[in-house]
Write a protein that binds this DNA or RNA. Structure first.
Length: 201
DNA sequence: TTGTGTTTTATTGCCTCC
DNA sequence: GGAGGCAATAAAACACAA
């Protein structure tokens, strides 16, 4: 078989001078091989290996994925193949094996990723629930403190109207703030006259 | 039968190692 | 520098639906 023949036909391929500028970064130039599927002897160029041959090669591949020279020659002799065919078969088999491993790894990582996403959703839901609980607790604490404040301030100078508008609708953070201010003012005996202004805020 | 997708065998070009 | 490995690709062989 002549390599020259194939190279001549390669003028049909997409190889060009420009391709040479991007070695390693671009797809390699493709060479067209002779079509027709027959070699000089009239035999088919590409022949499928028999089931037995493949089985034997598989068995050997299972034992050792690499093929040293002596083993290649003896395998070829046993199978009645060209040593190069054996080498090619091992090369292609390694490529298939590698692809399979990559696919397995991909699906393993995908499953792990999905599990993490699921856990994240659960944790987010839990955080939401805990936040709601916290808000509820703060609200209750604020109500309790408001009630205590009212009952402990019988001489309050607030009008009845002002008392009515006390912080029933207060947001939670404001409620906590209120608790703090209540304690502060109460303990320091500061006049509460300004409180209605505060509540109107 | 034929068009199309997949698998298998083989080639090419580059890289690394001894 | 030659042998062997790998990635990318070609092309034959095969499978299969329409």
């Amino acid at each position: 078989m002549s390599e020259e023949g194939e190279v001549k036909i390669s003028s049909l391929a997409c190889s060009s001078a420009g391709d040479q500028l991007f070695q390693g970064e671009r797809p390699r130039p493709r060479r067209r091989r002779r079509r027709g599927g027959e070699d000089a002897a009239g035999e088919l160029k590409k022949r499928r290996l028999s089931e037995e041959q493949v089985k034997f090669l598989e068995m050997n591949f299972g034992r050792e994925r690499k093929l040293e020279s002596r083993r290649k020659v003896s395998l070829a002799a046993e199978l009645g193949l060209d040593p190069k065919q054996v080498a090619v078969w091992f090369q292609n088999r390694r490529a298939r094996w590698k692809n399979k491993k990559l696919e397995e790894e991909h699906s393993r990582l995908k499953s792990a990723h999905e599990a993490v996403i699921l856990e994240k959703c659960h944790l987010e839901a839990e955080v939401l629930k805990l936040k709601e609980q916290l808000a509820e607790t703060k609200k209750e604490m604020s109500n309790v403190s408001r009630r205590e404040w009212r009952s402990s301030s019988p001489s309050s100078s607030l009008s009845a109207e002002a008392q009515q508008t006390l912080p029933a609708e207060f947001e939670v953070a404001r409620g906590a703030e209120l608790m703090f201010m209540h304690e502060y003012y109460y303990e320091d005996c500061v006049s509460i006259v300004d409180w209605p202004d505060f509540y109107q805020m």
